[in-house]
Design a protein around this nucleic acid. Structure first.
Lengths: 232, 232
DNA sequence: TATTTAAAATATGTCCTACATATAAAATTA
DNA sequence: TAATTTTATATGTAGGACATATTTTAAATA
């Protein structure tokens, strides 16, 4: 009858303390480098044991919000947005739905990235890309070995992220690699033949060299067609 | 002379244990719902105190990798990719560089998202968007109040993420909101006049209704021109 | 016997105390 | 004064104790 009775919020003390500390930091405009109250002081003021405070701080340390040195105490650091994600980005840990979301995210990023690439590309970058493509073209294993093709595929696209000049974006993509790898192997298993887009890596480099951001965007979209066509 | 002497890796026990447990879970192919060894057993097998194990598990709990119930013990859950990010996505905590990266990320996402939108858009979605646009057009405050304009801007773009049909993407954007808000206020402070793109929200809705993914992508790129033009 | 009620067992949650360790700061010595 | 040693202090680690919730088991009641 009352199947959706209110679940009393029994958040653990650790979680509460974690939130309180974060609030405390935000409200008081703590800046990178500022030093925090010690663990015992925090524990006393919060009315909990030092253990609880330590677990909370351990979480914040993991996120890069705080750092701590032996005698000096703790101080604020600039948190790393990706440090949390980094630990769990693994096909063995993530669920199917999350994997699908991430794979789609990759497609979105690579199509949308074009503008950044044209703002920040350097000639040396384009040459490096060309070198990758040439190496791929001359590698006899590419014809037979799926793993080899995958490796070149990943190397090429990874370099694009690096070229974006957005460090967060670049690191993010490197974390996604295991997921890409997994998903693309799944794809090549299910699909009988590896459908290839009409735009090759070589075409993309050429566009990057002499084309426009607009053209590159559409070429990339085309290059990724095999993946997009599997969405629903 | 030897200014870059190798810093001996003195990772804390907690961090080591955290890694070991994660490895353990991956290698043994733990699936969602499987139960974990108890804290004391883990502590004994790892040769550390229960405190250390608890701090490590607390981190994993935060990431959603494990859940725990009072007498039942701990079991595997599907980790939430975003739970780590969620806590620190705040202009008061993040550094300038991270904020810039995130802002760029938003631009990349919205341009690249077009394909997903056209695969998953429903008529009701387009109508909802239209409703937002109409409300914006008829709101007299829009002319004078920056905050009001910002609110509509955010409401409109947020709805696009929801339409993408990618829950992770959608949640991600909702976390980015505070950062957007901050960055756009910064923009409107610095720039004397708020440069507007030639493509309006209304145009975007029209394209979504009768256009193609390709057109929408370019219109969105155009709509975001004021932001892109500030990049370097 | 079947059903309800009460007790016991157990794994996590919280608290406490003690000690180890590293290091900044103070005191000592050359 | 400068180099050295000592001391003080905040985090890091350990281990024990009890609280709490919930499953399982046993007991009691109809």
């Amino acid at each position: 009858m009352s199947s959706k009775i209110k679940p009393i919020k029994s958040v653990s003390l650790v979680e509460q303390v974690e939130q309180r500390i974060l609030e405390f930091l935000k409200e008081n405009r703590f800046k990178s480098g500022d030093s925090l109250p010690g663990e015992i002081e925090l524990a006393e003021n919060l009315g909990v044991s030092r253990n609880i405070v330590r677990e909370s701080l351990s979480r914040l340390r993991m996120l890069g919000v705080v750092e701590s040195k032996k005698r000096k105490g703790m101080f604020i650091a600039e948190p790393d947005i990706l440090s949390g994600i980094e630990r769990i980005m693994d096909p063995d840990l993530l669920g199917e739905e999350a994997m699908q979301h991430i794979f789609e995210l990759r497609l979105v990023l690579e199509v949308g990235m074009s503008e950044l690439l044209f703002i920040r590309k350097k000639d040396s970058d384009v040459n490096s890309l060309q070198e990758i493509v040439d190496r791929e073209a001359n590698d006899p294993l590419c014809k037979t070995e799926l793993q080899t093709r995958l490796a070149y595929e990943i190397e090429f696209h990874s370099y694009l992220y690096k070229m974006s000049g957005n460090g967060t974006l670049n690191r993010f993509q490197s974390m996604l690699l295991p997921v890409f790898h997994y998903m693309m192997q799944q794809e090549s298993k299910s699909a009988a033949e590896p459908v290839r887009g009409t735009v090759s890596h070589n075409d993309l480099v050429e566009t990057l060299r002499n084309g426009t951001a607009y053209e590159f965007r559409e070429h990339m979209r085309n290059h990724l067609t095999p993946h997009f066509s599997k969405l629903s």
